[in-house]
Each structure stands twice: as structure tokens, then as C-alpha cells.
Simulated assay, not measured.
Amino acid sequence: MPSIQHPVLIIGGSGVVGVQAAAAIRRLHPSLPVTIAGRDLGKAQAVAERLGVEALAADLSRPDLGLPSDALFSAVIVFVKDDWSHALRFAQRHGIPHLSVSSGAFEIGIEAARFIHAPQAAPVVLTSQWLAGAALFPTLEYAKAFRSIETLHVGVLLDEQDMGGQAALTDYERITQSGSATLTLKDGRFVWIAGEEATARYRSVDGVELPATAYGPLDVLSLATATDAKNIRFDLAFDVSASRRAGEPFSTESVIAIEGVLQSGERGTRRYEVVHPRGQAPLTALGVALATERALGLAGGEALKAGLYFPDGIIDPAYYVGRMKEFGATFTEVKANG
């Protein structure tokens, strides 16, 4: 395992998820240095002191990010929307991995264009799947039971009390309101849906049905590439979680339904439920930590070379799911038929 001398820079690291991501990285790799950065230096310092890491002021509107000219880092993680793409360019100039978590499927052209113009500069990891992969990787692991897949449907529930900080709310509003339609896959064709076609019903893990709508993280692109499924749809319910209906604290849920031909040769449908009792933040933090350790070569292989990556192309689903269980997620299979 390589020894990393320079810290991982977490921009937005004093936010709800950023704090937990820093903590997850430290839990997985206690010797890996971390620097928390944000516009509010006092807030960053308070978080850094609690975690035993460093803090810096950062400003995404500046090409140098407002950082000291002699500061060196091993990777850059961005937990807020970088409207200028300055953090990516900063990472490319320094030849270090860049990880982002805030882009919808309709927005990745910005990052892709920056990579295309400098393909040898740095590893660029697009980590904007739902909760940084918390629904994607279980789906990929469960898909191994199928010889071929006709339909993949992922429904997720974000509790109304579990939005997190202002940055997360801004991302949610931008992705749900700015894009005119949501990407799905129908009969092998990528289709953008809107209006009535985008509405759905989500059946929670306690059987309660809730209103939902098609949502546009990067999961559809990752799943389409990895599984060759003919139909893929991702729906989001923003409502009350089953745990809170039962009088407990909010949780977060993913319900995965897969229809196709099983490895046995029989047709079948399977339904799987993934729940974390402390909501979305621990899973998002873990996903970012796992992508970071992989990019730096601390787990799963050598450090990434310059390239454009989805996390599912560089992390083994079984390893990811195993880590999710270690961090408190529960997994349940409900056989539908077959």
C-alpha cells in the first residue's frame, strides 16, 4: 500500500456529508492526511479540530481556489457544485485525482469537456451517482444472479428531514428543476421523460406507497453500460421513511427490482431492499471515501492513471457492498416470483 504524503483536499468538507466523508476516510485510512476547505474558514477549522485534520479557506470562484501557492494535495473532492470548473482544472494542473458528487446526468458534459481537452492531466472520477453509489453497487451485485436483464428499476427514498445542508438542497433543486427531462432507458433506447410520464409510485420497505418522480443521477448511465438491461428507470420519493412512520429516527431506503433470465435459465423477478438507519449522509460519505481510496491506490489496485472514470468501473461491487454492511446498511431480498 502506498504512503500518501500530501493531504486529500475536501472542498465543502464542513457540510453535513463532507464532515462524515472526512471521518470515513480517516476510519478507513487513519494515516491518510486530510484538509477540510470552505469559504467559511472558522467553520472549517471547527470541523477540522474535531476530526484532528487541517483546515484552509477555499473559494471555487478563483482559479487558484484561494489556496496557498505552495500547498500540495494528493486528491481533490468537491461536495458543492463547482460552477466554474476551477477545482477540476486545479486537479489537472497538479496531476491529482478529482472527484465530484453534485452533477446530474444532464450536466456531465462540462466535466467531460474539461477532460477531453486534457486527457493526460489527471484521473477524473464522476461520483454523482445516488449517494455516491449506495444504490448502484448493490444493484450491480444483485444483477450477478441474472444471465440477462430485461428491466432494472431503482426506487430510492430520501426522508424529508434528511436533506442535509444547504449545498445538498441546492443540488436537489437544481437537478429536479433545471433539467427539462429525466434520462431513462426504454426498449434499449435512451429516452428523456417529463411531466406525467415522469411521475411514479414508490413502495416503501413497510409496504406503504408514496408519490415519486423520475430522478436524474448518473446511475442510469452506469447501469446501462454495466448490465445491458433493456429498460432502466430511477425514481425518487421525498417523503417520510418507514422508520420515521414507526416513531424512530429517519432512515434512507433503496428498493431494487430486477426482471430477466436468472443464471438457472428461468425467468424471474427479484426485489431487494437496502436501508441505512441513519439516513443518506453515512452512505454518501462512505461512497466518496471508497472512490478516494481507489483513486489513490489504497485499495483495489494501483493508483488510477489519467482518465475519465465512473466508480463502478474501478471498484468491485462485492467490496463496496461489504463496506456498506460494515458502515451500518442492511440488505434484504424479497422474492417476487420465479
Results as ranks from 00 to 15, higher is better:
R294N: 03
T213Q: 11
R189E: 08
E111Q: 13
D239V: 07
G313S: 14
G216L: 12
A214P: 00
E160G: 11
A242D: 05
R245Y: 06
S148I: 13
I36Y: 00
G13R: 01
I110Y: 07
A291L: 05
E197L: 05
G12F: 12
L158K: 03
Q280E: 15
H276L: 14
D83L: 04
A306N: 03
V240G: 02
K230L: 13
P211N: 15
G179C: 10
E111T: 11
P68F: 02
P2D: 04
G279H: 09
E111N: 12
V8G: 01
S178L: 01
L65E: 00
Q161G: 07
H276R: 07
I108M: 11
E54T: 13
T225A: 12
P63R: 14
E333I: 11
A58D: 02
V156R: 05
F146G: 05
A200F: 10
Q161D: 11
A71Q: 06
G338C: 14
Q45M: 07
E111Y: 05
S102R: 10
D162C: 06
P211M: 10
A121N: 02
G15Y: 03
A289K: 01
V16A: 07
I256H: 03
D235N: 15
R270I: 00
L126V: 10
A229H: 03
F137E: 04
F137W: 09
E197M: 04
A214R: 03
V78Y: 01
R174E: 10
D40S: 15
K230G: 08
T151R: 14
F106I: 04
R39I: 02
I315R: 02
R93Y: 08
S31Y: 05
G328C: 09
G38A: 06
Q161T: 12
D83S: 10
L169P: 02
A285Q: 13
E253N: 05
M324H: 02
T170Q: 09
R39D: 04
S61L: 08
V275M: 14
G207W: 08
S3L: 15
L236F: 07
P138M: 15
M163Q: 07
A24L: 06
L136Y: 05
K305P: 00
S3N: 14
A57P: 07
K335T: 15
L304P: 02
G52A: 13
Q161N: 12
G188P: 06
L223E: 03
E302K: 09
G338H: 15
G338S: 15
A299N: 05
M1C: 09
R244W: 10
F115D: 00
Q20E: 15
D239C: 10
G109W: 11
